[in-house]
Every structure is written in C-alpha cells, then in structure tokens.
C-alpha cells in the first residue's frame, strides 16, 4: 500500500550550521518498525534531491519511536551566510512528511 509519511509520523527540524536535522516520530508505537524499514538513508537522500547536497545520516531512537536524520549541505551555507528564506531548516520537517512510501505490509491507519 501507499502511505504518505505524515499519516504515520510527525516531525521537527532545525539547523546546526549548514546541516539540517529532521526528527521523525511514529504517531503510534506500532508504526515505528515501518519507519525503520522504509525510511532509509537512500530513500531520504532521493526525496531531498536538490535540497540536501551532501550526505544523509540516520540515527535510531527506538525508545522514542523515532529516527533522527542529519541532512548535510542542506541550508545554503547555514547561519547568516545562507540566502534561503528558511536558512534554519525549520520547514525541512514538512518536506520530509510529504514523502510517499510504498510499503509491502498493510498498516491500520
């Protein structure tokens, strides 16, 4: 089935220099395994093509049902150097949540 990430997760994003961080949190504990399985570094890198110019890192926080992504070179230089309206990556969370996921299992939404 097709799922838009916002249906199964919520998120918050921010900056550290030119690196954006996006925390993705399962809306229900039972959704977390799907995040772990489908929200891979490669999938996120592909989704943020043209926004994140560097590498993507992923960290797992199963205790919070959450993943933390670091998107390197995603903020146009970061800080006061950036020419972006969203120089601090506050809306990268929205960009993440719009992702469409194709999953093999059936999730009760």
């Amino acid at each position: 089935m097709k799922v838009q990430l916002i249906q199964i997760a919520h998120a918050r994003s921010g900056d550290k220099g030119d690196t954006g961080n996006v925390g993705v949190i399962a809306r229900k504990p039972e959704y977390y395994p799907f995040l772990e399985k489908y929200l891979t570094v490669d999938r996120v890198k592909e989704h943020f093509a043209g926004i994140c110019l560097g590498k993507v890192e992923r960290f797992e926080l199963p205790n919070l049902g959450a993943l933390n992504f670091l998107l390197h070179e995603a903020l146009g230089g970061g800080g006061t150097r950036s020419l972006k309206n969203d120089a601090q990556g506050k809306t990268l969370s929205s960009v993440m949540l719009r992702m469409q996921l194709e999953i093999n299992e059936t999730i009760l939404l």
């Binding site: 961080n21 925390g23 949190i25 926080l61």
Partner: peptide
Amino acid sequence: SSTVKEQLLYEIGDPK
C-alpha cells in the same frame, strides 16, 4: 509525550 519527543529530537546529532 509527543510534544516532549519533538523537542528531544530538535537540533540533535547522534542521539547516543
């Protein structure tokens, strides 16, 4: 717990 989780995930790197 959801509002706290969002803040815990805010501007962190490696959570460990």
